[in-house]
Design a protein around this nucleic acid. Structure first.
Lengths: 108, 108
DNA sequence: AAATCTGTTCGCAAAATTACGAACAATATT
DNA sequence: AATATTGTTCGTAATTTTGCGAACAGATTT
């Protein structure tokens, strides 16, 4: 009966998930996770998309909090946002931990 | 230089992430994970959205493979898709495991 | 057979997403 | 100062997403 309000955790998980909801953005995150830091150009030259589009995807990831950018004229260095990455990691871990399919009947 | 093609894992991760990229859908998944199984009505009455909208979100989750529906006239029972849930869990786990921020300099 | 219950689908509207080229701004180089 | 480099922003177009009421379909009950 009672409407279950959407709580903060769900909102934040959804926000991170949305940011990761595009293959290009997943590829960017994977690249950043391997490379430690990257300049825009290094990221862009790996991707099969226009410069403007790459910049837009990076903006999305930044606004979601998953990465941060630092201006190092004339370049821009991007890297993973440690704190939010950890938060996202925990949120997803909790989320997927809620259903232990092999241990109960939730998915029979 | 070489364009890094988007691989299958990235595609699938993005697909699952996209499905989880809405607070309502996260709430539905949480509910299903706790309740074992649910009829549409039970899900809908918890959510602050219209019946048609709830049905649409469930369709999204089903098409992404995270849940499955079974018709039990006149009701419809939804539950988590075990195999795909496990796959998603593994994909996200690998993804977040790629950057151990505290162990290297990836996010300095 | 008519009415009811359950949930999906249809049709629509508003908003957000995706993608690109061109223009732009800021710095560095010549 | 003129030119080149680096990356963002603007303007535009096509597509997708979100949300809802109304209509609908299928099964059950009266």
């Amino acid at each position: 009966m009672a409407k279950t309000a959407i709580d903060e955790k769900q909102q934040r998980l959804a926000r991170y998930a949305k940011a990761l909801g595009h293959p290009i953005r997943v590829a960017i995150m994977n690249f950043l996770a391997e490379q430690d830091t990257c300049f825009f150009g290094e990221i862009h030259e790996r991707l099969p998309i226009a410069k403007a589009t790459a910049s837009q995807h990076l903006k999305e990831l930044k606004e979601a909090g998953l990465i941060q950018g630092e201006i190092m004229p004339p370049k821009v260095k991007y890297c993973i946002n440690r704190n939010n990455w950890q938060e996202a990691k925990n949120l997803f871990s909790d989320f997927f931990g809620k259903c232990q399919c092999s241990k109960n009947g939730c998915c029979e």
